[in-house]
Each structure stands twice: as C-alpha cells, then as structure tokens.
Design a protein around this nucleic acid. Structure first.
Lengths: 248, 248
DNA sequence: TAGTGGTCTAGACCACCGT
DNA sequence: CGGTGGTCTAGACCACTAA
C-alpha cells in the first residue's frame, strides 16, 4: 500500500480506505467470499493490507452502507445475500394499506424464451445488437390476487441454463436464484415510474378491465462496477397495494 | 457527559456520540444555528461537550448522512437548507426521459383556505379533531404544461400568516418558504404511490381527458423528532415526465 | 473465555478554502 | 498563512456472540 505522501501527488487522489474498499470489492466480485459467508476479521484484513484496523473499518463501513456487507456485532462481517429475510423486500416496494409487507406471495412463470436482443434492450444492457438475451414473463400474486405482471430481460451469456422449469421450481426471490445458480448478484437498481392504461393482454393477466390505471415500473438493475444486468417492465395493480418510498 | 462505564449500566445503552448527536439535534431544532449558517468547528464542539474530536465527528457524520448538516472541506459544517440548489429536487422526483431534472418550473396557487381539520387529516398530523389546518391547492407546470396538481394540508398553528398572496409571491420551493418564514424545516418524507383515473376536476386542471391514468403520490412530511407537519396528495401527469427512484 | 465488531481517545499529518 | 474538515494510526476498553 502506498503511503499517503506518495499517493497524494496522483492526479486523482484517493484515500487509503477507498483503495482498501476497492480491493475488498474486487474480492467480492471475484468470489473469494460467497454470499452469506463471513469475511476475515478487521484485524486480519488490516494485517493483510498493512494498514490499521481503523482504515479497514472505514472501508467496511462504506460497503455495509451500500448493502454489500452486513456487520454483526460479536460474530463478524458477512457478504450480503438475497437469501436473507431482510433483503426480501429491498427491491419490491409494494406495501399494504397499513405499510406492512404483503403476505402470501406467489410467483407464476408465464414464459421464458431466448432470443436475439432488440436494439433498445441491447443498448441498455450494453450488449451488441443481436446478442442472445433471455426474456421472462411472470405474474406475482398476493393472497391469490394477481398484482404485478413483470417482463424481464437478462443477458444470455450470464444466464445460460435458465429455463421456465428452473424458474418455476425455485422458491423465494428471483435474485436469490440468480445469485446462487448464476453467480450474478444484483446490487442496486434505478426505477422510472409512470401511470398507464391497461392494454388487452395485460388486463387479461391481471384480471382488470381494459383501460384500468396501472403503475408501470421500469427498472434497470446493476451488479458490481455499475454493470447493468437486468431490465424489468412491471405493471403494478395498485388498488389494494401501493408502492412505498422513503425520501431522506 | 457521563463516562462510558457509568452509562453502560443504563437499560437502554446509547453511545457517547449518539448523545452528542442528540444535543446537536436539539440545538438545530431550537434554532441556535439557522439554515445556511455554519455550526462551530469540530474542535470547538469537542471542547464544549468535553469529548474528543473523533466523537463529535461521528455525531456530525450521522447528521450529515441524514441531510441535517452539510460538510464543506476547508470551510466548515453548515445547517442544511431548502434554499440550496442541491436540495431543490430532493423531494420532487420528477425527471425527463433522459433522467435530468425538468426545467422551466412554474407554480400556480389555486387556493389557500383555513378550516377545521377533518378527522383523518387531524389523525395523520397528530392534531385534535377540529383544530385549525391550512389547505393549499397548487398546480406545477414545466415548460408551460401542467404536470402536478397538489393538495397540501398543514397545521394551522405552525403556519399562522400563510395566505395565497404570500405563497404566490414566493419564488422557489415551498419548503424554502416554510423554513424561512415559519421556522418549520422538512426533514424527511414517506410516500405512497398508486395509479388512478383522472376525475373531472383533476382532469380539467391538468388538461387531460376524464379517465386518463395519473400517478397519485400521497406524502407525509416530517420535521425534527419524526413529527408529521405536512400531508400532500399529488396527481402527477406522467406522459412526458416520470417519477424516478433509486433502490440502494 | 476467546474472538468479533463497536466506541473512545490523543495525536499526527494532509487537503482544501479564504485571506 | 491559519483554520477547517479529512485521513490515518496505535492503543485501550466495552458489548455481544458462541463455544
């Protein structure tokens, strides 16, 4: 590790703890520690990198704030996972009238196809036009009532063995499956929300009249290094549930 | 300040930096430092509270993360203000197709009335039913096109001199006016989003057909101590603009 | 009891800003 | 230049967990 005085002359100054953070991120991305596992203790990492515990702490603090790591006092620091209960509703912002997470969720896969990427999909996923992509359509229901119709696009190269059967036999969040079976961890997402009218095909799946108002949620999901790896177009029926958002 | 060993026996343990944070929050709430002003330096505060600079730092770190304070290297730490450019679009999440903040914003006040709080409004604002509230309706336009119809409810006691004239003559965000003229600073908000159909009165104001899909945004806004001080029902026209959200 | 993260301190030095 | 926040260190002790 370069001492601060040497690094300070670099055109783009980066403090030591950020370099440590980058090294840790690299190890996470490279799979040195898997989701759910503990990473080495702060003192071990400090020894490995030749810095003080405080510097490692600050790097881990930022990674924990970004939900890449989870600290547990007395136990250690763990790689975040979409398997954990606390992660279940981090990306799905639907809530009941009372602000609680809705129960009795069920996912039905409508279809799963491989095809050549349309130009706009390719551009958003940073693929070459015509490269292979996977398109998944699925219906989310709560208490037996359809609530969300999702159309999902994934890079074909990253999701080779993905089939409707594999998706249907999976229990829990899709992101848990993606992380376990395909080694792709969703880190953050950017959503664009609009109100639209249900067209005939959407209305049929959601069992509402044609023209009913629906919340359209377009999501771009990113993995490490801000690499986009998923696109979603979700039609949300918001008569009983709503999309919840906190403005800090 | 109690030493750690004494405080440790308290039933609800709170570290020293959180006590400092509470003291700072109290000074902010009490108006010792006004929005836009600098607070004392870290070393001054450390001396005042009889703790180390590091402990003050950690307290300020959290307040900065909550957008109550703004750090500026080499200059000092300042009380956050809704006047600043960076705060303008913190609560208004509308973006253009390209993800930019929309330009040419104009606010037109439709009316401003004082009345006795309906039961549900009173409950949400933690007022006694029948207490005075102010109801404001206003239309936000971008590039001359109506985009948001807002209905706003405020506690009458906190907003005594608020009139349609005062609102209309104000330039900039309402929250800047509220903070300057009424001493009430909006800290955070909780929003519930739904898709609805435009009824006749809303359709007229937004110049859309009756039944057009609109994004309904219901907001509860809080000041210090999680005290709710504003309710909003906004009807958003999302054909050209959309509601943008980042999922961390 | 050993090991982990969490808090607190004191001190040194760096980066940045305004004068 | 002096003063501010930002980084880094070394060391002490506390709180929590699991064995």
């Amino acid at each position: 590790m370069l001492p601060l005085t040497d690094r300070a002359k670099a055109p783009t100054f980066s403090p030591l703890y950020r370099q440590i953070k980058a090294l840790l991120t690299g190890s996470l991305q490279g799979g040195e520690w898997k989701p759910g596992e503990a990473i080495p203790s702060e003192l071990e990492l400090a020894a490995r990198f030749g810095v003080s515990q405080g510097t490692v702490r600050k790097a881990i603090d930022e990674l924990a704030a970004e939900n890449l790591l989870v600290r547990r006092q007395g136990r250690g620091t763990f790689v975040a996972s979409h398997q954990e209960a606390r992660a279940q509703f981090r990306f799905l912002r639907l809530r009941t009238e009372h602000g609680e997470a809705p129960g009795d969720m069920h996912s039905r896969i409508l279809d799963c196809r491989r095809l050549r990427a349309p130009v706009d999909i390719a551009r958003q996923l940073r693929l070459r036009s015509g490269e292979s992509v996977v398109q998944v359509r699925r219906l989310l229901s709560f208490g037996g009532r359809p609530a969300v119709l999702d159309e999902i696009w994934l890079p074909g190269g990253l999701f080779k063995g993905l089939t409707a059967e594999r998706l249907s036999s999976h229990i829990g969040p899709l992101y848990a499956l993606f992380e376990e079976e395909f080694g792709t961890r969703m880190i953050r997402a950017s959503e664009r929300l609009r109100a639209v009218s249900a067209d005939e095909s959407v209305a049929t799946e959601l069992r509402v009249p044609v023209g009913a108002p629906l919340l359209l949620v377009e999501r771009t999901t990113f993995t490490y290094n801000d690499q986009p790896v998923e696109l979603r177009r979700g039609f949300y029926l918001t008569d009983e549930l709503h999309y919840h958002n906190e403005l800090g």
